[in-house]
């Protein structure tokens, strides 16, 4: 971090950086394994070590009673995660639904390299933005198709006789 660290400045900077990282991790998690692989292989290779091997496990998904009440356990999802450390020191993590270990490794490496000031702009431009746009476009298509099925119900009022 290049910023002078005052207590306040540090925390707001950290919170902002964390929010950014949450966003890029969400974008990567939402992308298809093929799309991630293609973007990853377009990057120059970089040295890294595995901190935590790609590992598949379960997360119990919770809902809320009535939508807003006390939580309850709905059922599990498969999740694959991975942690890597670059030779330059940055640690990258990935968590996403499914069992694709290659995607988990690629995603963790992209996350790590995004944290490098030297690479961030490039990764945002080449990987994050296009993936986020594709995801948004897919969502938009669903919305538009759904909107065409919107109904207007009329209730018939019966006459007196």
């Amino acid at each position: 971090m290049t910023e002078a660290s005052t207590p306040d400045g540090t925390s707001s900077h950290t919170a902002g950086a964390q929010l950014e990282r949450q966003k890029i991790m969400a974008t990567l998690a939402a992308a298809a394994p093929d799309a991630i692989a293609e973007k990853f292989h377009a990057l120059q290779a970089a040295d890294y070590e595995l901190v935590r091997q790609p590992e598949t496990g379960l997360v119990m998904v919770r809902g809320r009673m009535g939508g807003t009440g006390n939580p309850f356990n709905l059922g599990e999802v498969t999740v694959t995660r991975c942690v890597v450390r670059l030779a330059t020191g940055e640690t990258g993590s990935s968590y996403s639904l499914g069992r694709n270990k290659e995607k988990a490794l690629h995603t963790a490496l992209i996350d790590a390299r995004w944290q490098r000031d030297e690479e961030r702009a490039q990764i945002e431009q080449d990987i994050i933005t296009p993936l986020a746009e594709a995801h948004a476009a897919a969502g938009e298509t669903v919305k538009q198709e759904t909107e065409a099925t919107k109904v207007n119900f009329f209730t018939m009022v019966r006459g007196d006789n």
């Binding site: 496990g57 379960l58 997360v59 669903v142 919305k143 759904t146």
Partner: peptide, 23 residues
């Protein structure tokens, strides 16, 4: 199959008000 996998933990409760609604 699920008995062969480790449990990472519990999710935050899903928010159905923020659903991408298809119906």
């Amino acid at each position: 199959y699920r008995t062969t996998l480790p449990r990472f933990g519990y999710s935050q409760p899903v928010d159905t008000a923020r659903m991408l609604v298809e119906r």
